[in-house]
Amino acid sequence: MARNIGPKCRQCRREGEKLFLKGDKCFSDKCPIERRNYPPGQHGQRRTRLSDYATQLREKQKIRRIYGLLENQFRNVYKQADRQKGVTGENLLQLLEGRLDNVTYSMGFGSSRAEARQIIRHNCILLNGKKANIPSQLVKPGDQVEVAEHAKNYLRIKSSIEVAKRRTIPAWLEVDFEDLKGLYKNNPDRSDLSSTINESLVVELYSK
C-alpha cells in the first residue's frame, strides 16, 4: 500500500503553517516551523510571487497533507463530493472530516491522523460496536466510535487522551474520556471548520 513516508515537519514548512502532523511536537517549542517559518531547501528563503495556478495547487497540497491522503485518494474524494448535491467545496471538507481516521484523531484517540490510521489498522477501534479497520470508512451522524477493550491500556492511546483533554473537542463530536467512546453527532458546518482552508481554490483547480 502506497503511503507518504517523508519528513512531516518539512510538509508544514512547505505550506507555511502548522498542519499538526506530529502530535505533541506540534504544540511544543520543538516544532521546526516556530524557528524556520520558510519553505525547506536552499531556495526556501527567496521571496516569490505565486501564479493563480500555483496558489490553487498549494491549497490543494495543504488540505491533502492535513488529512494525510495521497493524490489519487484525494481526487477520488473530490469526485465523490462533486457528485453530491450542495456546494462541492463544503461537501469535500465534510467527507474528509467524516473519515474514520480523522474522527478517531478528533476524538483524541490518536495523537495525529497518522497514528489514528495505525491504531485503526491494528483493530483498536470499534464503529457501532463492530470492528472497523479501514481508515477511509465514512462515519455517519449518530455513529459511535470507541476504543476496543483490549486497547484501552495501550500507552500511546492513554497519552493521546491526556493531550486531547487539554484541547477543544469539535462541536459536532461528543466524547466520553472515561469509557473511551465518542458520538459523531452531525456533519460539521463550514463555519465550524478551519478558516485557514480555502476549499474554493481546490474546486477551481480541479474544474480546469
Rank of each mutant, 00 (worst) to 15 (best):
N186M: 08
L126F: 03
R47P: 00
R10F: 12
Q137W: 06
L70N: 12
D101L: 00
E199R: 06
R83K: 15
Q45H: 15
Q56L: 02
I134V: 14
D192S: 07
L201C: 03
Y154E: 13
L138A: 05
V103C: 02
K158P: 02
L100I: 07
P135G: 01
G98I: 03
V145A: 07
R167K: 14
Y206Q: 11
C9S: 12
V163Q: 15
S207T: 14
H43F: 11
Y53D: 02
D24I: 14
R83L: 10
L96A: 03
C26Q: 11
M107K: 00
Q118E: 12
I5F: 03
F109H: 02
N153P: 00
E204V: 10
I125K: 06
L183I: 15
Q80E: 15
K22M: 15
E162T: 13
D101E: 01
S111I: 14
L155G: 02
N4D: 13
N102D: 00
R166F: 00
N123Y: 09
V87Y: 08
F74L: 06
H122P: 06
I169R: 10
K130F: 00
A116F: 08
N187C: 05
I33C: 03
S112E: 09
V163T: 15
Y154S: 10
S28A: 08
I63V: 15
L95G: 02
S191W: 02
L173D: 08
E199G: 04
Q94K: 14
E15A: 15
G23F: 05
D143T: 10
E204A: 15
D143S: 08
E178R: 12
Y78K: 01
N123D: 13
E178I: 12
N37W: 03
S207I: 04
Q137N: 04
S194Q: 04
E15T: 10
R35M: 11
Y105M: 04
Y206E: 13
L173T: 13
G16I: 10
R47D: 11
N186C: 12
V202M: 06
E97C: 07
S159M: 12
S106C: 04
K140L: 13
R46W: 04
Q118W: 07
L193Y: 10
K85T: 14
T104S: 00
D29E: 08
I169S: 06
L173E: 11
Q144W: 00
K79M: 05
S28E: 05
S106D: 03
N123W: 02
S200R: 13
R46Q: 14
N102R: 01
A132H: 03
Q56D: 11
Q80I: 07
P7D: 04
I63F: 10
G89R: 07
L127V: 06
A171M: 09
L155P: 02
K140Y: 06
R166M: 09
R83I: 03
Q118V: 04
H122K: 13
Q137K: 15
L95Q: 05
N133I: 01
E199N: 03
R75H: 08
S194A: 10
K85C: 06
R10M: 09
K79R: 13
L155T: 11
K131H: 02
E59K: 11
Y67W: 11
M1G: 09
Q137M: 14
Q84Y: 04
F20V: 10
G108A: 03
G86Y: 05
R75K: 10
R3C: 02
N128M: 07
P141H: 05
I63Y: 07
R75F: 02
G68A: 08
N133W: 06
W172F: 14
N4L: 11
K30C: 00
E204T: 13
E115Q: 15
R64W: 01
G129F: 05
V147H: 07
